Amino acid sequence: MDGGNLIDGTGRADRADRAKDTDGTGGIDGIGDTRRALGAFLRARRGRVTPEQVGLPGGRRRRVRGLRREELAQLAGISVDYYVRLEQGRATQPSPEVLGALAGALGLDAAERRHLDTLTAGRYGPAPRTRVSPLLRRVLDSVAPLPAFVTNHRTDVVAWNEPGAELIGGLGGPGRSERNQARYLFLDPVSSRAVFPDWEDRAVEAVGQLRVATGRCPEDRELASLLAELSAHSSEFRRIWATGEVVMCTAGRKRLRHPRAGLLTLDYETLHIPAAPGETGLVLHVFGAGEDGRAGAAGS
Rank of each mutant, 00 (worst) to 15 (best):
G4S: 15
D8W: 00
G9I: 11
G9V: 09
R12S: 12
R18D: 14
R18S: 04
A19S: 15
G27P: 04
I28C: 06
I31D: 00
D33G: 03
D33N: 15
D33Q: 05
G39D: 03
A40W: 09
F41V: 03
F41W: 07
L42G: 09
A44V: 11
R45L: 08
T50D: 11
T50K: 14
T50S: 15
P51E: 10
Q53K: 13
R60Y: 09
R61V: 07
R63Y: 09
R65C: 02
Q74W: 09
Y82N: 08
V84R: 05
L86G: 03
E87R: 10
Q88E: 14
R90S: 07
Q93F: 03
A101G: 03
L102I: 15
A105K: 05
L116C: 08
T118I: 12
L119F: 07
A121E: 12
A121W: 06
Y124D: 15
G125F: 03
V132M: 06
V132P: 03
L135N: 04
V139S: 00
D141C: 01
S142H: 12
A144S: 15
V150Q: 02
T155N: 14
T155R: 02
V158R: 05
V158F: 04
I168H: 01
I168R: 05
I168F: 07
P174C: 03
R176Y: 03
F186R: 02
D188C: 13
S191H: 14
S191N: 13
F196Q: 00
D198G: 01
D198P: 05
W199R: 00
E200T: 10
R202G: 00
V204R: 10
Q209R: 15
V212G: 00
T214E: 11
G215K: 02
R216A: 14
E219T: 11
S225K: 13
L226N: 06
S234L: 11
A242C: 06
T243K: 05
E245A: 15
V246Y: 06
R255T: 13
H258T: 12
A261G: 01
A261T: 00
Y268S: 06
T270F: 07
L271Y: 12
L271W: 09
H272E: 12
I273G: 01
I273Q: 15
P274I: 06
A276L: 15
E279N: 08
L282M: 10
H285T: 03
F287S: 04
G290T: 10
G293S: 08
R294I: 05
A295N: 05
S300R: 14
